[in-house]
Design a binder for these strands. Structure first.
Lengths: 209, 209
DNA sequence: ATAGAATGCGAGCTATAGCTCTTATTTTCT
DNA sequence: AGAAAATAAGAGCTATAGCTCGCATTCTAT
């Protein structure tokens, strides 16, 4: 009924031309996701938008899901770049300042491509490959946990790992929610207030008497 | 090409028999969502599982989306029942105790039907009707804001409304995340610790010196 | 220059999703 | 009892999604 590998190996691009194709496909996928939503992002449409034939598309991506996964990964990388940068500068700061930086970074991260972020968060069914792509969540958690452990003496919490979970989850939710569902919080003034409050929340928690 | 309303009005069930049909359909939808995931939940499959013909299905639900929306609403109602109950008992308590109750309620709420909750949160593309069904989020926010306003004298926050946003968002994210992605936090002991920490987080924030 | 690999193409297949419409059954009302 | 309204049934239509496969084109390397 279905012979499996009669077709060519669906492998990574090696020549430059093909890398361009792959890039075009991923870019087109992102564009359509943002402008038209997940439903309209059919593989045919993606190929067409990318100026690539449907056959070529399937040479590099075994499924629509794989395409979306690539977009997610690319977006996560973009975000991690921002976060990483800020956290680096922050490593040696005391908690009071570091947390503030972290919150700021979180907001920055959510501003990288808010529309795409929203689509990825709200419209994409996490199924199959997509199910397991919370990479950057884990990563941030690990980074922040490391920071906390290095500053253990400044803390008053019973369990550092749990504390990291509490902080990261809260900050992420706060910024996510603000950026995606409360545009009124994005004026300069409101953003500042939000940062203040989020920082107060977390710092108070970490250093409570 | 397409004549619009040549068919019967797609209206609400009035007789008892039809109410049963509707219930069966909603229940079947929920069951399939949980057991098979969103993709497998085709209208045909739903009708079959409900023991109802596809024609009858479309007599009451104009689309698959409407069916899912019904499931979401039913689930939200279930959750709001729990939350409402707890918040009622809590209205006159001081913040220290009230927040603890609220956190507990949040966890309870997430335990109503975790599997369904997860599917609804992770697999359902928020599109069309679904886009606007965050009813219960708004509701909880309003309820908690009312509580905070009634206890304004106990607070030390610059903006009560913003404070409500911060608290509700954090608690929701914490419990959501814990219940859905950290089953190890669901032992009795771990849950207690989580409640302690979440409460400390929020109370510290609301009453900071 | 030419073989062989890598890449690109796109007509077209298969499957199924969502949905309509006609016909049959049950309920309600008089 | 019998007419009319409400409800149920399900064969089957339309559309399109995802994807394959044979062939054409372009690269790479000798």
């Amino acid at each position: 009924m279905a012979r499996k590998p009669l077709t060519k190996p669906r492998k990574y691009a090696t020549q430059e031309r093909s890398r361009a194709t792959v890039d075009a496909l991923v870019a087109a996928t992102a564009r359509i996701l943002v402008k038209e939503g997940y439903d309209k992002a059919s593989t045919n449409r993606i190929a067409e938008t990318a100026g690539v034939s449907i056959g070529s598309l399937y040479q590099y991506f075994p499924s629509k899901e794989a395409l979306v996964a690539a977009v997610v990964e690319r977006h996560n990388e973009d975000i991690m770049e921002v976060v990483h940068a800020v956290l680096q500068e922050t490593a040696s700061l005391p908690i009071g300042l570091a947390v503030r930086q972290l919150v700021t970074a979180a907001i920055e991260a959510h501003r990288v491509d808010p529309k795409l972020h929203r689509v990825l968060a709200e419209q994409i069914p996490r199924t199959g490959k997509l199910e397991t792509i919370d990479t950057h969540g884990r990563q941030i958690h690990a980074l922040f946990l490391a920071y906390l452990q290095a500053h253990k003496h400044e803390l008053r919490v019973p369990d550092v790992s749990l504390a990291a979970f509490v902080c990261v989850t809260s900050i992420e939710a706060l910024t996510h929610n603000a950026v995606l569902h409360h545009p009124e919080m994005l004026t300069d003034k409101a953003t500042k207030t939000l940062i203040d409050e989020a920082s107060r929340l977390v710092i108070g928690y970490l250093q409570a008497p």
